[in-house]
Structure formats: structure tokens, C-alpha cells
């Protein structure tokens, strides 16, 4: 089975600061890292490959330094890595991003299965996976915790709903987005790192894509424009309670129930 995993390089720290004046992300001294949600997608793909054979290809759209995130995928076990890198892709919203990625998938494929992370830690939209599936006109399932072959060119995907697990049978090719914390992602291997060549990551530009109309990509191809970026209000509240243990236990129990953090 040939599997493609879409990944993204995100800021290295979760404490990303936004300049309150300009609304621009302060990226100085911020090292990039692989989007944490994508680690579960990669592991899902690797474990499926271990069971049924095949290949895992990693794909991202990003600036030249996103190569580092793709190298990490190779060190973790990917067979191939592709970087969609072109100034004309810059400033893309979810639609333009999905267009570029789906065009890249068409160019590099065919693939039987596409796996995306649930969302990214920087954009947080959780929409790119589903939009890629729409643009490729293939079935998809979100928040998937497990996939297995179901015979006659089909896959069974277990999707995590609020209170149920929904098992979906899909014809390949298809796309799934991986739920978080569903596995323990493998660590990058030093042996694989030493074995990887300098040219391990294949580069694709707009000129390599099947549809080269640049109005479809980047800022000009975006259906939405960002008006303002601002950090959310920090609403951490601390309360200190004192009193006899039994009374405190009752109070805490009521509080947790009220906050729907536990069930009666």
C-alpha cells in the first residue's frame, strides 16, 4: 500500500508570542519542529505499512527550512519526502494550501491512502485534510484512531466521536486525519539519519504541478484574508480553599461535576 502523509513544520515552542502592535508572530529564535499532531499520523502510517507492506511518503508545503521537518520524517521511517516550495505558494489560507497539496499529491502519486494530522499547532483550523479529500474527490474520515484493510480495495477506519467509535468502510484511494494520542510515535533514528543523503528531500515548485495557474495558489488564491492576529486573553484563575478535609473533598467533587470534568 502506498501511503502519503501530509505534515507541517510549526514553531518549535508552544509559547508562541504575537506582537500586540503588529499582530505578527514573533518567529525570531524560534526553531521549527514537526507539528506534534502529525507524529500520530506518521505512526499510524508506519504501523499500517508494517502490517500490509508498501511505502510511506511525507509531503509538506513550506519555505526551504521546512526541509528539516521532512528529514525528520525520513529519520522516523518515511521512504520518500517531498517539499512543495515556491514563493508563489506564500500566504496561502486553508483553500489555497489544500489546492497546492492536492496538486502535489496528483503529481507525486498515485497513493492508496493519504493521512493527515488532526490539525496543526499554529493554524489550528483542522480543515486542510478534509479539503484535500474534496479537491481530490476521494472519500475521507476525520479523527481516526485505527485503520485496517477491509478487502476488495477498501479500508476500515475507526473514527472517534464524542461518545462513540464510528467504523467507516471506505474505497481506496481515501484520506484520513489521525486523532491525537492514539499511539506512541516512534523516535527519529540516528542510523537512518546517518544513512540519509543530502538530497534526500525532493523539491517541487509550482512549475512541476499539473495545474500551473498561479492565481489558484498563495495569497492570490486564498478565499479568506487575515485581518488581525492577537493572543487570546489568559483567563487562568487560581482559587485557594481551606477547611476540613471532608468538606474540601465535597466542595472539590461538586466543582468537578459542575465543570463537567467528571461524571456522577
Amino acid at each position: 500500500m502506498d501511503i502519503l502523509v501530509c505534515i507541517k513544520q510549526v514553531p518549535g515552542s508552544t509559547n508562541v508570542q504575537v506582537d500586540p502592535e503588529t499582530g505578527v508572530l514573533k518567529r525570531d529564535s524560534q526553531k521549527g519542529k514537526l507539528n506534534p499532531y502529525d507524529l500520530f499520523a506518521l505512526e499510524l502510517a508506519f504501523s499500517l505499512r508494517e502490517r500490509v507492506g508498501g511505502t510511506v511518503t511525507a509531503l509538506t508545503m513550506g519555505p526551504a527550512q521546512a526541509e528539516r521537518a521532512l528529514l525528520e520524517c525520513l529519520y522516523m521511517g518515511a521512504d520518500r519526502a517531498l517539499l512543495l516550495c515556491d514563493r508563489r505558494f506564500a500566504g496561502a489560507d486553508v483553500l489555497a494550501t489544500s489546492r497546492a497539496l492536492s496538486a502535489g499529491i496528483r503529481r507525486a502519486g498515485p497513493f492508496d491512502l493519504i493521512v493527515c494530522g488532526k490539525q496543526t499547532t499554529d493554524g489550528d483550523t483542522a480543515q486542510v485534510g478534509a479539503e484535500i479529500a474534496e479537491l481530490l474527490d476521494i472519500p475521507h474520515a476525520c479523527n481516526v484512531r485505527e485503520i485496517s484493510p477491509a478487502g476488495s480495495g477498501q479500508l476500515m477506519a475507526e473514527t472517534v466521536l464524542e461518545r462513540e467509535i464510528l467504523c467507516v468502510r471506505m474505497s481506496m484511494p481515501c484520506l484520513v486525519t489521525a486523532e491525537k494520542d492514539i499511539n506512541t510515535p516512534r523516535l527519529p533514528s540516528f542510523v537512518r539519519k546517518m544513512a540519509a543523503s543530502d538530497k534526500a528531500v525532493e523539491l517541487l515548485t509550482l512549475d512541476d504541478l499539473p495545474d500551473r495557474d498561479e492565481r489558484l495558489y498563495g495569497l492570490t488564491g486564498s478565499a479568506t484574508q487575515v485581518e488581525r492576529i492577537f493572543p487570546p486573553d489568559n483567563e487562568t484563575v487560581q482559587e485557594h480553599w481551606a477547611g476540613p478535609n471532608a468538606e474540601l473533598a465535597e466542595k472539590l467533587y461538586a466543582f468537578l461535576l459542575d465543570a463537567t470534568l467528571i461524571e456522577r
Partner: peptide, 20 residues
């Protein structure tokens, strides 16, 4: 690697450090 480790795994991001 020369002393018998079949591989060495890199623990470099917050997520990986936390897992280990």
C-alpha cells in the same frame, strides 16, 4: 553504535522529551 546499540533514537522536541 560501535558498542552494540542497534540504533540510537533522537529525543529532541518537547513532545519527545515528555514521552521519554
Amino acid at each position: 553504535l560501535t558498542l552494540g546499540a542497534p540504533d540510537v533514537f533522537i529525543v529532541d522536541t518537547d513532545e519527545r522529551k515528555s514521552a521519554v
